[in-house]
């Protein structure tokens, strides 16, 4: 299984190449592109990016594992990242975890059997003013209650 960037990403890479004094700075942008393109960062993507940036694949792996948003395995179609930090904890994140646990029969870190939903617990997302809050496929939802969560999930295709 090989990996190549699609033409849109190639275009972006070309543009970014001129925006930084050294190509190493493209490491995070290229990992992001690979993740959006494939859903996760595949070993092949690591090798490809390493070769493009003239870095070792190990070096790239060290970076991909440092940043928690980079995924080294696939997640469900819908990825809920629920904030577990203090303000959200004070405002009821536990009730949401419990609710989803009952609804889907999964624990944080797991994906539903049909591969539709993954639940992750994450650290403060800067949405404390709307605690408890979560991010669903990178969109913030604040002041979440079990009921509003159900409504949100029902609206998904």
């Amino acid at each position: 299984m090989s990996f190549t960037f699609n033409p849109i990403n190639e275009e972006k890479i070309k543009k970014l190449w001129g925006e930084y004094p050294k190509k190493e700075s493209l490491t995070l942008p290229m990992l992001w592109m690979a993740q959006y393109q494939e859903g996760w960062i595949t070993p092949e993507a690591i090798r490809t990016i390493a070769a493009r940036l003239e870095l070792s694949p190990s070096h790239l792996f060290g970076i991909a594992t440092f940043y928690t948003m980079f995924r080294l395995s696939a997640v469900g179609t819908y990825h809920i990242e629920l904030c577990q930090t203090l303000s959200c904890a004070l405002c009821g994140k536990d009730a949401l975890i419990e609710h989803l646990g009952k609804k889907w029969g999964i624990r944080p870190g797991e994906t539903t059997e049909d591969g539709r939903f993954t639940l992750s617990l994450v650290e403060c997302l800067g949405g404390c003013g709307g605690a408890p809050m979560l991010s669903l496929n990178e969109t913030y939802h604040e002041n979440v209650t079990p009921e509003s969560l159900d409504a949100l999930l029902e609206g998904l295709s």
């Binding site: 070993p43 690591i46 070792s56 694949p57 190990s58 070096h59 790239l60 792996f61 060290g62 594992t65 440092f66």
Partner: peptide, 16 residues
């Protein structure tokens, strides 16, 4: 070839 992966007290030396 060698790299430190992960972070905090899960950090470890490894190869890709």
């Amino acid at each position: 070839d060698l790299v430190i992966a992960n972070r905090g007290n899960h950090a470890c030396v490894t190869t890709f």
